[in-house]
């Protein structure tokens, strides 16, 4: 089928193709690649947010990028007000076998659960100070939860004199984000069979945003372990 499409692409001019393929014009971006593509290194990542583009124009960097080839943005990378890179990241972590639609619906269900719980709490709270404390935006809850779960140190297995030592060391920003999201998902997957994932995920996020719960404890455990193993720290460079 794809081969035919490519053959068609060469034969039929662009305008004809869109009308003949479908009754309605495609609203989402579609690209016809024969197989999974990997773009060469010199292809830049696309800048698809309006704010980022405005920043480029302000700094006069647009002319530099004009001549460089750019990758097409993925279907989920939109300039919507609702777009959030961290949410996208979490969705990708939840995703299995490339089923992004399902992953997205699960995360959104979790957000809905968080929102319902927080609104309920908001209505129950009696004083305005208490009300102000409650995070109503589920995305804020997610951001705070991930922030609270990020570890500051990590243990690296290093072999010295035939013995493997767990050596504490610094952690990169990227890996600590990875660990935070992974731990959150591990914690929510560790549940009763009858509890649905969105529900449990919502609870975990709320707990973590509150600086309590399984995941924060796991982070603290890691920190404690690093503290206990500080005598091995010199193995990192010796």
């Amino acid at each position: 089928m794809n081969n035919i499409r490519i053959a068609l692409r060469e034969v039929i001019p662009n305008r004809l193709r869109t009308t003949s393929r479908n009754q309605w014009p495609n609203l989402t971006q579609t690209r016809f690649y024969a197989r999974a593509t990997s773009f060469p290194d010199y292809f830049q990542n696309p800048i698809f947010r309006k704010e980022d583009q405005a920043k480029l124009i302000e700094n006069n960097e647009l002319s530099k990028l004009a001549a460089i080839p750019v990758k097409p943005p993925a279907a989920c990378e939109t300039s919507s007000v609702y777009y959030d890179p961290l949410v996208n990241k979490v969705i990708n972590h939840v995703m299995k076998m490339g089923n992004k639609q399902l992953a997205r619906s699960l995360v959104e269900k979790a957000f809905e659960n968080i929102k319902r719980k927080q609104i309920e709490r908001y209505h129950l709270a009696s004083t305005p100070e208490e009300k102000a404390k409650i995070l109503l935006n589920p995305k804020d809850v997610l951001h705070r939860a991930v922030e609270n779960c990020k570890p500051l140190l990590q243990l690296l297995p290093i072999k010295r004199g035939g013995i493997t030592y767990q050596v504490p060391g610094p952690i990169t920003e990227k890996r600590s984000l990875f660990l935070a999201v992974k731990w959150l998902l591990d914690a929510s997957n560790d549940k009763e069979r009858t509890v649905h994932f969105p529900e449990q995920f919502a609870w975990e996020l709320l707990d973590a945003a509150n600086n309590t719960g399984k995941v924060v404890k796991r982070k603290q455990d890691l920190h404690r372990q690093c503290e206990a193993n500080r005598a091995y720290a010199h193995y990192r460079w010796q």
């Binding site: 007000v81 609702y82 929102k115 609104i119 908001y122 109503l136 935006n137």
Partner: peptide
Amino acid sequence: DRLWLRGP
């Protein structure tokens, strides 16, 4: 008003 929708 019911806090169901927030944002810009």
